[in-house]
Design a protein around this nucleic acid. Structure first.
Lengths: 230, 230
DNA sequence: GCCGTATATTACCCATGGGTAAGAAACAGT
DNA sequence: ACTGTTTCTTACCCATGGGTAATATACGGC
């Protein structure tokens, strides 16, 4: 607003500091956005830092004002996508509901994230390209997501919203379908992201959902699992 | 038949040629086996040709007797896995059965392939690391597999073994679950490959399979798809 | 024994691309 | 205008690793 010349510019003397910091953060994000795009288009190793810089109309060394290495850029690309999923989990955990409801919510959210560049970066990049340190973080994060899936399924089995099933395999099957979205989805396509999300939330849980329509609980308990453990 | 003078080793004079050729092929395959292992362990770019050679107790240039480039090795790794899946499809196509039966057969076979190194190489390697030429082949091959999934589903809908569903999304969902196996399965684990295959064949089609138990076809046709096209 | 071929080795080339050093521009605060 | 800081450029370094040339060795055929 306003804009007096030569003095009395803004209400806060710290404004320049902050504005500068904000500009910096914006640039950082711009680098990441561009990097993700290129990594997805050409692959991580098929993309040079010169490519990234060029698309931003700057030169390679300028990137080193915002990142310490190419690997750090890769990691942060992944981190952005992961953060979005992680937030979903925290949110769902805090809300409550049946296991099935929570599972469906996670599926829908996860699916939608997977249609974005950030989401794709979670599954299209190779963990081998990360430093040992970051690789550990990624592994732990993936495990947390996996645990969330399993927890919701287990919750569902306990509260009766989900029929008996192999928790581990079911979680893997669902996660697989979702992750795969990051490999085939393209924005221009005939399927809008929300529709995919909604459809997946239904279809992926179709086999799991306890058939409450059949009388009350269908045939009596039947055998709980099938086969022994293993 | 006869022997030869001075040695009388084998029945065929061409034997040496052939034996030599066989030895060559065996070595070629040994290179591929080793390469796949290392690529999966360390990533394609994390593996040097020296690494491959070293594990085979030879030196890097020796590899060039069998392959023209590192990229060719990568491609052939992929090709081996793909061939196995492709054979499955041809076999299933020739056998017949309901759409659901064919789909289940494909799922089971595909799942088992995915637990092997060859199978993993189909989903863990980045197409960006292939030459334009080979990338086209891979794309076409993946499309063929996708078409097989969709065809079986469509067959199933037509012959009544599968209930109405979005063919494209269902195919993607199933393929995703299966491909994901290549990311999490490890031989030492608690789940043997055949069990995964069998379980997946059932669970992944559970939501699809027409409920023939409910009277005849449950509620009447209902709307076939939902929404228009898009 | 001699030769041709296949196979492997040693030694080398060199493009690529991540990363750095030194200094110029831009800019805020005084 | 002067100064310190941040940002960016030009110019460069250099390890890496795919790929090649020249050469040695094993081996089958005659």
């Amino acid at each position: 607003m306003d804009g007096s010349p030569s003095s009395a510019t803004t209400q806060s003397p710290w404004m320049p500091f902050e504005s500068r910091r904000r500009a910096r953060d914006e640039k950082r994000e711009a680098v990441l956005r561009t990097a993700v795009q290129l990594f997805l288009e050409q692959g991580y190793h098929g993309t040079t830092l010169n490519d990234v810089a060029e698309r931003l109309n700057i030169t390679k060394p300028a990137l080193y004002n915002y990142f310490r290495s190419k690997e750090e850029i890769l990691y942060e690309c992944w981190a952005i996508g992961h953060e979005r999923v992680d937030d979903c989990i925290d949110e769902i955990d805090s809300e409550g509901g049946t296991g099935l409801a929570k599972l469906r919510k996670l599926i829908a959210r996860y699916a939608e994230v997977m249609t974005t560049d950030s989401g794709k970066s979670m599954v299209r990049f190779d963990v081998h390209d990360l430093s040992e340190h970051n690789r550990k973080i990624v592994r732990a994060a993936k495990q947390k997501i996996d645990r969330a899936f399993r927890r919701y399924i287990r919750d569902g089995i306990e509260d009766g919203s989900i029929g008996p099933c192999d928790v581990k395999l079911s979680a893997f099957a669902i996660a697989g379908s979702l992750n795969w979205i990051g490999h085939w989805y393209q924005p221009g396509g005939p399927l809008p992201a929300e529709e995919i999300a909604g459809e997946f939330a239904i279809r992926l849980t179709e086999g799991l959902a306890a058939r409450q329509s059949r009388k009350k609980a269908g045939k009596p308990p039947a055998r709980v699992k099938r086969g022994g453990k293993r």
